[in-house]
Computed example of a mutant assay.
Amino acid sequence: MHIMEGFLPVEHAVGWSLAAAPFVAYGIHSVNRRLREHPELRMLLGVAAAFSFILSALKLPSLTGSSSHPTGVGLGAILFGPAAMAPIGFVVLLFQALLLAHGGLTTLGANLFSLTVVGPFVAAGVFRLATACRASCNVGVFLAACLADLMTYVTTAGQLAFAFPDPIGGFGAAFAKFSGIFALTQIPLAISEGLLTVLIFNALRRFNAQELQMLRQPRREADA
């Protein structure tokens, strides 16, 4: 993921930035409302942000112009809902671009959309579905984190294929090529991230039970 600085055509960079902007704006509103109601959740929100920052900084070589790494967005999406991860991810990606040369400013919108929009919504949806199917909490957390990671990279492969279609096979051939290369490193990384997220979530259930109980309180439908 983390498409490098200057790699996307200008019109693609602008388009993805415009697509991601509403999610960041609404996420800020959602997080601020939640923290006004329960300011004691700030520490737990910080844990979710740190988890995403650390995991998404552990990059491995993959595609030219991109990299492969865990995402860390599943935990925050499960705890606070997917909307909260857009502003958190914005800060994470901005710091990584400026301090670690990981990603870039011109590609910030594209990276935001795959990492902090698609990934978190997949994680929240999978976790709710697993809960509705009466799967154990550990199974739900694992599937949510693992599939959010994979779908982030499916989105990135689509972004790259859209920007650089194959001269013969077009978008479909380029997408198959990009996603196939990502799969070599990302499938084991996604499984590892799922297992690690289960461990962290269980630790939070043990040591932050009161905060988690607050998060289980009914949310407004818009926070879903």
Rank of each mutant, 00 (worst) to 15 (best):
L184R: 07
I187V: 15
N111D: 12
I28L: 14
A174F: 10
F80D: 03
C137K: 12
G72K: 10
G74Q: 09
N138V: 04
N111V: 15
Q213L: 09
S192L: 15
L44F: 06
L93T: 02
C137G: 05
A48I: 08
W16T: 03
F182H: 08
S17P: 03
V24R: 01
N32F: 09
G46T: 10
L196P: 09
L184V: 15
A135F: 12
P70L: 13
Y153Q: 01
F51V: 07
T116L: 00
V91G: 08
G180V: 08
N111Y: 13
K177A: 10
R33S: 13
A77L: 00
A20V: 06
A21R: 05
L79Q: 10
L100N: 02
I191C: 02
D149A: 12
V24A: 05
S68K: 11
V141C: 09
L147D: 07
L204D: 08
A49K: 05
G109C: 08
L8W: 04
L195Y: 03
L8T: 08
M4I: 07
L41E: 04
T116R: 00
L94W: 10
Q186L: 14
A130N: 02
T116K: 00
R220A: 11
W16M: 13
V139F: 08
D223H: 05
I181K: 04
H69Q: 13
F171Y: 14
R220Y: 08
R206E: 06
T131K: 14
L55M: 11
A77M: 04
S62W: 06
L93M: 13
T155W: 02
F178W: 06
N202R: 15
T155R: 03
L160I: 05
A83M: 14
L105K: 03
Q159V: 11
F142A: 08
V10C: 01
A48R: 02
F121V: 04
I78T: 12
L199F: 13
L189P: 01
W16K: 05
M4A: 14
A157K: 14
R216N: 15
E193S: 01
N208V: 02
A148C: 10
L58K: 01
G81E: 05
A183S: 15
A86S: 15
G103S: 10
K59M: 04
L60C: 02
A183L: 10
S62Y: 10
T131Y: 04
A148W: 02
A25S: 08
T116S: 07
H29W: 15
T71D: 06
P61Q: 14
G6M: 03
T64A: 06
R34L: 15
L93D: 01
P22N: 00
V10S: 09
M151V: 08
F207V: 04
M85C: 11
I187E: 06
W16L: 11
L35E: 12
V122F: 05
P61I: 15
N208Q: 13
P9H: 02
L108Y: 07
G103N: 10
P61H: 14
A157W: 13
A86V: 13
Y153L: 00
E5F: 03
A144N: 07
V14P: 03
V91S: 06
S136V: 06
G76H: 07
M85F: 09
G169D: 06
A144I: 00
F207Q: 00
H2T: 07
G140Q: 11
M43E: 13
E211K: 05
W16E: 02
T185E: 04
A48K: 01
A132V: 06
